[in-house]
């Protein structure tokens, strides 16, 4: 089965079959990552460029390792977003990179829609969205699905609560699309200032209380709260946030006993998640990171049209 997309711009445009193909492909790559010699020749001769306009450790490293373990040449570029008046435009930067004939550009940008803008203008290479503004972060949602499926054996029929700054999170949007397509029920919870208008139309149930939101769920997904939000008009204090929306050893008992706890990182220990929970038995946070490499290998493989055997 071949993959019908040139770019991965978001989960919104993927079908359930696409998602399943990615997850199944990732499964075979996960084994490679645990070998003694963690390298296969699958993408030899392919060039992958990580073009990051926003700081990122986890995602960039994960894509870089994914590329290298498949023998692609991976190059990292840290760029600063230009303004209209100074600096090179996004299009010029991308065209210059394209002129060097890469196969895939993995891109992160603070502007929602930036990878879509490039996809309309570049002709040669594929683009993977590694996070655009508050819009989508497809590879994160895919690694989350992969991790859930590994633990629960399925995604269909599960209930997942996502707690935190729903309004400003790209992880949320991609996960809502992904989980709904796979047949899970999605709840979101956060302070009133962090619930964006119309979110329920994406197929979620909205809560303003973590206890109600996580009651009886199979998966609790906590979001990073950006510390700079404290003290502006969105949030009075982190103390209060932690009290009403933080996950701790008490309220986690409301979720199913076998519920798993996820976090896309980086965590603020003691703010959205207590260390006891973050390091507790139910957490799968580092598995998410491990699975991220396998999922990103699958994305690179499917986009590069790799037909070679592992």
């Amino acid at each position: 089965m071949s993959f019908p997309h040139k770019h991965i711009l978001g989960i919104e445009h993927l079908s359930r079959e696409d998602i399943e193909l990615i997850l199944d492909t990732a499964e075979s790559f996960k084994e490679v990552n645990r070998r003694d010699i963690k390298k296969v020749p699958t993408l030899r001769g392919k060039t992958v460029i990580n073009l990051f306009y926003e700081a990122s450790t986890r995602t960039r490293t994960s894509f870089e390792i994914a590329g290298k373990r498949m023998s692609a040449d991976t190059i990292n570029i840290s760029a600063s977003a230009s303004s209209v008046v100074k600096g090179e435009t996004l299009e010029d930067t991308a065209r210059n990179i394209e002129a060097m004939n890469p196969d895939i550009i993995v891109m992160r940008h603070s502007a929602s829609g930036a990878p879509h803008y490039l996809a309309q203008r570049l002709t040669g290479c594929s683009i993977i969205n590694a996070g655009d503004g508050a819009h989508e972060h497809p590879s994160q949602a895919l690694l989350d699905l992969f991790t859930i499926r590994e633990h629960k054996g399925r995604i269909e029929g599960l209930t997942v609560a996502i707690v935190g700054d729903i309004a400003h999170s790209r992880v949320v949007r991609s996960n809502i699309y992904a989980l709904n397509k796979m047949g899970a029920k999605v709840r979101v919870a956060g302070p009133g200032t962090m619930i964006p208008p119309g979110i329920e139309r994406l197929g979620v149930e909205v809560f303003h209380d973590i206890e109600e939101a996580i009651r009886g769920v199979d998966v609790v997904m906590m979001l990073r709260i950006q510390l700079e939000r404290q003290g502006n008009t969105l949030l009075p204090t982190l103390r209060e946030y932690s009290r009403f929306f933080g996950l701790n050893t008490e309220n986690i008992k409301l979720a199913r006993e076998d519920a798993i706890v996820m976090h896309p990182g980086p965590m603020n220990r003691g703010v959205e998640i207590s260390s006891y929970v973050a390091d507790g038995l139910q957490n799968v946070i580092l598995e998410q990171v491990e699975n991220g490499v396998a999922v990103r290998m699958a994305l690179l493989y499917l986009l590069a049209g790799g037909e070679e055997k592992l």
């Binding site: 919104e12 929602s112 829609g113 655009d132 503004g133 508050a134 819009h135 989508e136 309004a167 790209r170 949007r173 964006p196 208008p197 119309g198 979110i199 139309r201 994406l202």
Partner: peptide, 15 residues
């Protein structure tokens, strides 16, 4: 415009 489409697109809304 602030609303469902802005929420979907991840663009900041003007209510």
């Amino acid at each position: 415009n602030d609303g469902f489409v802005a929420t979907e697109l991840g663009l900041k809304g003007i209510p």
